[in-house]
Write a protein that binds this DNA or RNA. Structure first.
Lengths: 339, 339
DNA sequence: GTGAAAGCGCTAACAC
DNA sequence: GTGTTAGCGCTTTCAC
């Protein structure tokens, strides 16, 4: 591996001069020297040692993406199309901006802290954190941080977040069902914290606007990791007797259930209407195609990276932001108009 | 950020001793000192600076995953379920083995070389390389390298590869169609190099075994990036007049076409049979569920990482390997038995 | 058992 | 315009 020192010796000049040329500070160097150095860099295939540079500069040009995954829920996080699109788009944007990506799936916040501290990561993007984890993270990592889809209590306001109008999206799609005459609607999620909590709130708002009560028995929780399990799926078939529609918190669950219904000979939307959330590939792939709430995951990813880098470059401290990106109703074929 | 030096000063001992304790070389240190150091490490939340460590040790504990993506084909590589599962599983295994993952999507091999050299990556995993790129890479990176799904000419044998029995899989599924009475079969891919070339070979072998000619007009190439394009999809509908089945090189394309046929009122498998390759989520999601060739992507990913680390730890040079993992026929509902 | 010190490759303040 | 030099934080050799 050829070093700056090597090249300086060969050219009989100092490392500073070589370094200056490499960093384009050519105004301080004679044109001739610049040319000689550039040539040698090329000839010898010199590549700067990033570890040395990071050590000297005390920064890393690394952006860490950390996702806390219970390996219980995900055997492989990237199998979830939301995360794979999100991370793929971030990877692209990070590279475009001249940064490096260090991907870190951890099962605890302590691990994340340890990791980012050790690598001296310039900035951190974290997805799907709950309050407790955020507090821990904030206490132990003083670097720049952007959260994705994080809901924190109002008492906390020193954070940057890029989320979604979850409440609004869920309101919209529930209203769409109500407008189509549905009155007995199930709400399906695999938990009721964070994002899904706000989706549930939006759902409730729509019901209330129509003067309908929020019935606890219409909240259907899918046991984590068992969304394909027949005993779980059967419940959906049984509830059709008293429900006319299901609002799902994710396209993935919705698509699974649609297929289950297809296989059982239950016709959609004739016998039951179904809606999703996210508008990912599954929503477009499944038949009938899924009526759902669309979010632009790629835009979210790019915005998160850009905002983070903006913060990194900011001279003075910038205001905190908590952006909730817009959603859109996508009407396809899984909602029936009731008389 | 607390350093070894800080702690040495506080305890009134040398950095060597602190370093020794941190690395578990406790045999050379008195029990009392060990305890004091350990306590301080905990109290101060000491985390080693990885850049400094890498610089001193001249290695990085980083495994680079590089994928050469024409951004033409992929706006987001991870939207492809094959890559997202592959990379997700690798990420998990890499972490499990105590390494770090640096993800790098590049549009040229030169970029990859530059990247891995700069970071002093210990090992490299590269997916989907063609010969030329491999040669370039090999010339410029002398580190340990494992390829994924790479076919190199027989004249080259100094490489490590984890691939698939592509030829066999394609043979199997074509034979399945032939056994079911199909004689006019289209073969669909988006290119005919690398993996897809071998799939085409397997397809041909099956045809020949049945004494059937390989017709060039039955090779259907999908223009890259236009798989959802109606003008492209229409071709498939038209060819039904002379073909009874399509062998697709990927589940993704197969699923798209199935949905197109559904939407056009063309019945599968009654009017035309379809098979896929990979057995990813789409194959299971689409209706009718897709008959396809299954590969275990996660197993492939884990094996690649484990093999790489094995090479990294090997004292002596180890033999090169070129593993082709087994595939399996998965019969679902998209193939009709003719008469 | 413990410590001094050189060095990994690069940067940047400062001197000439 | 160019060079000297002191670090960045850690590892490791060798001496005590």
């Amino acid at each position: 591996m050829v070093t700056i020192k090597d090249m300086a010796k060969i050219l009989g000049i100092s490392t500073t001069t070589v370094s200056n040329v490499i960093h384009g500070k050519t105004s301080e160097v004679s044109a001739e020297t610049v040319a000689r150095v550039r040539q040698l860099v090329k000839d010898m295939g010199y590549v700067p040692n990033i570890n040395a540079r990071n050590l000297a500069r005390n920064r890393s040009k690394i952006i860490g993406i950390a996702v806390k995954t219970s390996f219980y829920k995900y055997d492989n996080l990237l199998k979830d199309p939301f995360f794979s699109e999100l991370i793929g788009a971030m990877a692209k944007e990070i590279r475009k901006q001249g940064y490096y990506l260090m991907l870190y799936f951890a099962s605890s916040i302590e691990e994340v802290v340890h990791h980012v501290a050790g690598w001296n990561v310039d900035g951190l993007i974290v997805a799907g954190l709950l309050v407790d984890d955020y507090m821990k993270l904030k206490r132990n990592y003083r670097g720049t941080m952007v959260l994705i889809d994080c809901y924190l209590p109002e008492t906390i306001n020193n954070y940057n977040n890029i989320g979604l109008d979850d409440e609004g999206g869920s309101y919209l799609i529930t209203k769409h069902l109500l407008d189509n005459g549905h009155r007995k609607i199930g709400f399906v999620a695999d938990n009721i914290s964070g994002v899904d909590y706000y989706r549930y709130l939006g759902h409730q708002r729509a019901l209330q606007e129509y003067g309908l009560p929020v019935r606890e028995e219409n909240l259907i929780l899918i046991p984590q990791g068992r969304s394909r399990d027949n005993s779980v799926l059967k419940v959906f078939a049984e509830r059709i007797l008293d429900l006319t529609a299901y609002v799902f918190c994710s396209d993935y669950y919705a698509a699974n259930v649609i297929n289950y219904f297809n296989d059982q000979g239950i016709r959609i939307p004739e016998e039951v209407s179904i809606t999703g959330f996210d508008d990912n590939e599954y929503a477009r792939m499944v038949r009938p195609a899924l009526t759902t709430v669309a979010q632009d995951v790629t835009a979210k990813a790019e915005l998160a990276v850009r905002k983070l880098i903006e913060l990194l470059n900011a001279e003075e401290t910038v205001d905190y932001f908590d952006i909730h990106m817009p959603v859109e109703l996508v009407i396809r074929d899984t909602v029936k108009k009731l008389n």
